[in-house]
Design a protein around this nucleic acid. Sequence first.
DNA 1: GCCAACGTTGGC
DNA 2: GCCAACGTTGGC
Length: 155
Amino acid sequence: MTNYWLMKTEPTTFSIDDLAADPDQTTCWEGVRNYQARNLLRDDFCVGDRVLFYHSACKEPAVVGTATVVRAGYPDSHAFDPRSKYFDQKSSPDNPTWFMVDIKLDEKLESPVTLKSMRERAGLKGMVLLQKGSRLSVQPVKKKEFDTVLKMANG
DNA sequence: GCCAACGTTGGC
DNA sequence: GCCAACGTTGGC
């Protein structure tokens, strides 16, 4: 059973081009420090799940690509490193607080699907992303929503 | 840069 | 357990 997700990133921090430039086009998704998102990463992400890669807090917020989960939830080791900006004293290798997954790029969309265009699409009304005050950085997406976004990307 | 909405912290 | 204060997110 494949799950569908949307993952937010600020392109100034890590963009779709950064992912595309990686030799394996793969990255660990470190630094999530929100419990609801943590629970999803730890408990619900499975290898093979599909991901909408979303640019937030930028000029044109949009889904800019798709990816696949290639490693399910495992402890975020950045939380153990005092030099990391993601360091968290309360997380330890014995009893990790924070988790991450690995994702691999599927495709960078030729034409990004903007937040604006998603708001205008009746079929996407229920998307978590579009709910008022929604700021979950890792969020579930329905298969139908995932397919609709891709349809919008491909004309 | 503004500000609404949300999550976390900590005093009581 | 309540809730005010604070910090962060993220669209605009």
